[in-house]
């Protein structure tokens, strides 16, 4: 829909361009210049950091001070930083993070989808109160505050430095429940009734009828959960400091204090951590954006 509108606007502005060619070209020149400045603001810092991650550590200083263009392109290309990083067990951290994020998407996806389905399709006493309570508490009470009792609770289960401790508190995601609820509530009743009349159970309806048409919401929810787990730092740092359980973000943040600052290694770790969400967002951005705009902006 937005494309249609854009093309209309575009048509209108190209019509205008025929009327006043010089001024319109000038205006669109300014527009593109400003937009490209915006891109440079985003891209140059990331490129600079990437170049440094492929540069021998002592040269990182050399090129930057005084500055030469070499700071933006890795001329003394080396994998030194990456090699050192993996020699110190960064590969383990990557594997841990992937495992955690995928487990979160699968288990969390199932749990949140079931809840979203119940909230979206069932009528039962106390449904709205329950929904509001969950949504309100998770948005109102700051995470920093709930982290204290959550930590104590998880500790009392003996889950410190365990996979359960890392995984389970990250499963319930109010935004994702919200997303599923919206989507399931919009499915036409006839579709469900037809199957129910044939005697299908709700679980069967969910699996054979709802699931196949839910691709957009599944992609969006999966993306949200994967990226937020991949990026999560505070909870893993708190609950699983043990080396074997460290995730990428914790490993990077600890590297700052632990080894002085070895810039190229620090940035190499950061680049690895950055590549995953970037690769996911480029093809799936539409779903991600629709998810965020669709939930909050009713």
């Amino acid at each position: 829909m937005s494309d249609a509108i854009n093309s209309t606007t575009a048509r209108a502005s190209s019509a205008k361009r025929h009327g006043k060619p010089l001024r319109a070209t000038f205006t669109s020149g300014i527009v593109y210049t400003l937009l490209i400045i915006g891109v440079l603001i985003v891209v140059i810092p990331l490129m600079w950091a990437m170049a440094a991650s492929f540069t021998p550590n002592h040269k990182v200083f050399e090129y930057a001070y005084p500055f030469t263009w070499r700071a933006l392109l890795p001329v003394d290309f080396t994998m030194e930083a990456y090699d050192n990083l993996f020699a110190r067990g960064f590969g383990r951290a990557i594997a841990n993070t992937f495992f955690l994020a995928i487990a979160t998407v699968i288990i969390g996806g199932a749990v949140n989808a079931l809840a979203g389905f119940a909230f979206g399709r069932f009528e039962f006493r106390g449904k709205n109160v329950l929904f509001l309570t969950i949504i309100m508490l998770s948005f109102l009470v700051p995470v920093d505050l709930t982290a204290i009792p959550r930590y104590i609770l998880v500790n009392s289960f003996g889950w410190i430095n365990t996979w359960q401790g890392l995984l389970i508190p990250g499963l319930a995601n109010s935004l994702v429940i919200f997303l599923f609820r919206q989507f399931f509530a919009d499915i036409p009743q006839e579709l469900i009734d037809a199957a129910r009349v044939d005697g299908a159970t709700w679980l069967r309806v969910l699996i054979s009828i709802i699931l196949p048409i839910s691709k957009p919401v599944l992609v969006a929810a999966g993306l949200l959960m994967f990226i937020s787990q991949w990026n999560s730092f505070f909870w893993p740092l708190l609950v699983a400091p043990r080396q074997e359980l460290r995730v990428v973000q914790v490993e990077i943040s600890l590297a700052v204090g632990q080894y002085g600052t070895i810039w190229n290694e620090l940035l190499a770790g950061s680049m690895i951590a950055a590549v995953v969400p970037i690769l996911l967002v480029i093809p799936f951005q539409r779903y991600y954006v629709e998810a965020i705009t669709g939930t909050g902006l009713e």
Binding site: V39, S270, I278
Partner: peptide, 15 residues
Amino acid sequence: YFIPFVLASVVNAQV
């Protein structure tokens, strides 16, 4: 424009 938003705070902070 959207890329920095999906990067981890740890990553952006180190950069």
